[in-house]
Nucleic acid binder design. Sequence first.
DNA 1: CGTAATACG
Length: 255
Amino acid sequence: MRIYSWNVNGIRAVKRKGFLDWITEEQPDILGLQEIRIQDHQLKDNLRDIEGYYSYFTFGEKKGYSGVALYTKIEPLDVWHGLGIKRFDREGRVIAAEFENFYLLNIYFPNGKRSQERLNYKLDFYDATLDYCEELRQNGKEVVVCGDYNTAHHPIDLHDPDSNKTTSGFMPVERKWLDKLENHGYIDSYRYFHPEKECYSWWSYRTRARERDAGWRIDYHFISQGLEGNLENAEILNEVKGSDHCPVTITLDLD
DNA sequence: CGTAATACG
C-alpha cells in the first residue's frame, strides 16, 4: 500500500497544471493533500469524483485558506474532520480516517512565520496532535501522520540551517516537538531509509529557490512504532512540479 | 513569487 502526501498550495492551481492526469497515472492507494485553498461550494465534481477513489474534504472557515483532502482506493471504516478542538478545527487542517490496520491523520500544520501569536498557535497545535495520536493508539491500532509539518527537524533537512536558527520552521522550540514525537516512538519514514540523504520537499517561490535546490524537508510521514515492521519504502518525489512542495510517499506491507 | 482574494505563505 502506497500512501502519498502533497501540499498542493491550491487544488485548483494543480488541477490547471495536470493533477487529474498525475493521479490517474500514479494511482496512489491513499493520497492526502494539504492547502487545497477551496471551500465546499467551489469544489467541482471532477475533483470530487475521480475514477477508482473515495474522496473526502475538510474546509477552513476562511476563503482561499488552508483545507485538506483525502483520496483513497480503500473505503475507510470511518472518516472525520479535525481534532475536536474548535480553535484548531475552524482552520480545516485535519482529515482523519480509520482503516483495518491503522488510523491515518492527514494534517496541514500551521505556519508560524506570521507572528509570535501564530508560532504559539502552531506549538499548541503540535501538542494537541501528539495527545490525539496517543489517544487513538489506546484503541489498539497504529497511526500514520502525514502532511506538511512546517518544520525541518535537523540541519540536514534544510539547505541553509545556519541562517535559519531564528526563523519559524527551524527554531529549537519547533524542532524539540519533533524530538518529542520520536521519543514517543514515532518514526520519520523517509529518514529511516535515507539517514544521510539531503533531499527537500519545499522551496520558497519568492527567491526561486527550487532552481538552486535551496529547499527544506518539512513534509513527513511519521508512523507509530508498531508499523516499523510493515514499512517497506519511503520517497520524496522532488521531480513533481505544480506546487512549491513536492509529494512524499511511503509504502506499507500489510499482508 | 505564487495562489486566491486584499491575506497569507
